[in-house]
Amino acid sequence: MDITTTISALLTLAVFSFLYGDNPVYKFAERLLVGLAVGYALVINWQQTIIDRLYTPLFIDGRLALVVALVLGLLMFSRFKRSWAWLSGIPLAAMIGAGAGAALPAMLEARIFKQLSATVAVFHDASGAFEMFSAIVLLVGFVTTLGYFYFGVHRSNALAVSSKIGSYFLMIFFGATFGYTVMSRMSILIGRLDFLMRDWLGVIG
């Protein structure tokens, strides 16, 4: 039971104390955690992006194209002065524009085309009655769930029925996801309790 393990263990207990109710110990742990997390992200970002990707290439290797990045980056700080704040819209626009431009083809190819083709492929590859049945389940679920997210007013009954069936398929997906998520969350707690009992208290070996 060394001092390092004890510190980690006490902090773990401080967080768990929230289960009993909000209290000063938890409040302290919470603020410390938030502060450290901000500081950690700051350090990693500073070293690995501002220094490695901007400072060194620009001021040591002389890649002048990065002057623009520096200016755009500094413009972000204009937010702190009300009358200049609009300037921070420019770097924001650059980032958002770049993201949108890259997302367009990526979404079309990876999310839409490939997923549509895969739905057809199940029918193409199906052999035997059971596989065909599964393929039909897939198709019905796919089409009715798309129908669920159709927002125009439902002028026909067919659409209303389809959206109802779609909601059942969504529930199957949510149910499966819930089950797997329970697994996941329990694993995390097991890890923490394992740490407390094995590494700290040494009651399991």
């Binding site: 992200a41 992006t49 990707r53 972000m76 702190f80 980032m95």
Partner: peptide, 18 residues
């Protein structure tokens, strides 16, 4: 480069305001 560097500056702004 621009995309990532601007983002890093955004985080600095967050820390300052924090």
């Amino acid at each position: 480069d621009y995309w990532q560097i601007i983002f890093a500056f955004g985080l600095l702004v967050g820390v300052v305001s924090f």
